[in-house]
Amino acid sequence: MEQLTVAPRTGHKTLLYSELVTNLENLQADIAILGMPFGSAYGPRSYTNDQTNAPQAIRDVSDRIVRHPDHYDFDIDGPLLQGRDDIRFVDCGDVLPDLNKPGDHYRRVEIAVREILKTKALPIVLGGDHGITTPVLRAFSDLAPITLVHVDAHLDWRDDVNGIKDGLSSPIRRASEMTHVAKIVQIGLRAQGSGRPEDYEFAKNYGAELISAYELHEVGMQAVLDRIPDGGNYYLSIDADGLDPTIMPAVDGPAPGGVSFIQARQLIHGLVKKGRVVGMDIVEIQPSKDNASKVTCVTAGRLIVNLIGASIKAGYFDKK
């Protein structure tokens, strides 16, 4: 098999002290971290946008997210891996572009995720801008039907920007074209983004559940969870600007009134209990804008911790 990923470049070698495995052939894993730093650029200045630094920035605060993996964690009612010695938690490194093959990293990340899914593992992808969700989500075609649960301030239904159809403004539009995606639920919408009135109408006509941040705050996350079908396969895509900038300030388009950490945690635990979360990504963090406490990256890490702990407690990885 071709080499799909490379080891993280600096600082912490892996996220949350997981085992580094960059050879994905015959991978053995239950939970797998994968970095996807680069999306699909809209112009020459965005080839190396600040989001490309986010996967490593999140890894580098591992000791702030979880100081001791074997200590009790109140978010998940136990230690990180719930005291389970049989759970294999790995970091598969990063999928990087090949300058000789523009766009080929989208093909390789899809293959990488498919290799992870072959093992029945839970892939957790660190972006990168939101364009990375498109090739990642393509890899879930064998798990149809998928309910896409999208946390974001922005709509992300543009058909293209500057002729680019798989960039950061288009992942939900592209998801709507995937036959294995049966339902789309978007949570935390507010303020302005790249979406125009015609993009909003397209999303409504498709049948996407569009839940503004203000509706969420009025009705509560449990009411939102009740609108998501039970017993499904859920892919969770979290744009950092979907959360309130008081807890995730390091984003390009901060907008007051976003999803709280309490609500995001409730969403994760609720989805785990409703059915099976088959994958998650966290995108659009700009590390240079984070404050001294690195609260944006720490918050991203704590969301990952909640998914890991909740999925283990729910029996996702119990061996038959």
Score class of each variant (00 low, 15 high):
residue 129 D to N: 09
residue 149 V to F: 02
residue 123 P to Q: 06
residue 189 L to V: 00
residue 130 H to P: 02
residue 243 L to V: 10
residue 240 A to E: 01
residue 145 P to Y: 07
residue 314 A to D: 14
residue 238 I to R: 00
residue 277 V to K: 00
residue 159 D to Q: 08
residue 188 G to H: 04
residue 54 A to V: 04
residue 30 D to A: 06
residue 177 E to P: 09
residue 229 P to D: 14
residue 116 I to F: 02
residue 130 H to D: 03
residue 30 D to R: 08
residue 55 P to N: 02
residue 14 T to K: 07
residue 101 K to R: 14
residue 117 L to N: 06
residue 189 L to I: 07
residue 94 D to H: 02
residue 283 V to W: 01
residue 7 A to Y: 02
residue 206 Y to D: 01
residue 48 T to K: 14
residue 96 L to P: 12
residue 65 I to H: 04
residue 255 A to T: 03
residue 1 M to V: 12
residue 161 V to Q: 09
residue 171 P to W: 05
residue 7 A to P: 10
residue 12 H to N: 13
residue 247 I to A: 08
residue 252 D to P: 07
residue 256 P to A: 15
residue 215 E to V: 12
residue 137 L to S: 07
residue 142 D to V: 12
residue 58 I to A: 03
residue 250 A to K: 02
residue 276 R to K: 14
residue 276 R to G: 06
residue 81 L to P: 00
residue 207 G to A: 09
residue 202 F to D: 10
residue 317 F to E: 03
residue 15 L to Q: 07
residue 138 R to V: 00
residue 190 R to M: 09
residue 190 R to D: 02
residue 145 P to H: 06
residue 38 F to D: 00
residue 304 I to P: 07
residue 75 D to V: 05
residue 319 K to A: 12
residue 133 T to G: 04
residue 143 L to W: 08
residue 76 I to P: 05
residue 73 D to Y: 06
residue 314 A to M: 06
residue 108 R to Q: 11
residue 166 D to M: 04
residue 315 G to V: 03
residue 8 P to E: 11
residue 140 F to R: 12
residue 214 Y to I: 14
residue 9 R to S: 14
residue 10 T to D: 14
residue 220 G to P: 11
residue 111 I to E: 01
residue 52 T to H: 00
residue 167 G to C: 09
residue 24 L to N: 06
residue 307 L to D: 08
residue 234 Y to D: 15
residue 125 V to C: 10
residue 105 H to T: 01
residue 226 D to R: 02
residue 135 P to N: 08
residue 111 I to W: 09
residue 199 D to W: 01
residue 142 D to W: 05
residue 174 R to I: 02
residue 252 D to Q: 13
residue 179 T to Q: 15
residue 94 D to S: 11
residue 289 K to D: 03
residue 110 E to V: 09
residue 147 T to F: 01
residue 162 N to M: 15
residue 308 I to K: 04
residue 87 I to P: 00
residue 114 R to T: 13
residue 72 Y to V: 00
residue 194 S to C: 13
residue 240 A to Y: 01
residue 293 S to P: 03
residue 31 I to T: 07
residue 65 I to T: 08
residue 302 R to P: 15
residue 247 I to G: 03
residue 73 D to M: 07
residue 196 R to M: 15
residue 180 H to F: 11
residue 39 G to M: 04
residue 288 S to R: 13
residue 287 P to C: 03
residue 125 V to E: 08
residue 100 N to R: 15
residue 185 V to E: 04
residue 53 N to G: 11
residue 23 N to Q: 14
residue 320 K to Y: 09
residue 149 V to C: 14
residue 183 K to L: 13
residue 133 T to C: 06
residue 166 D to Y: 04
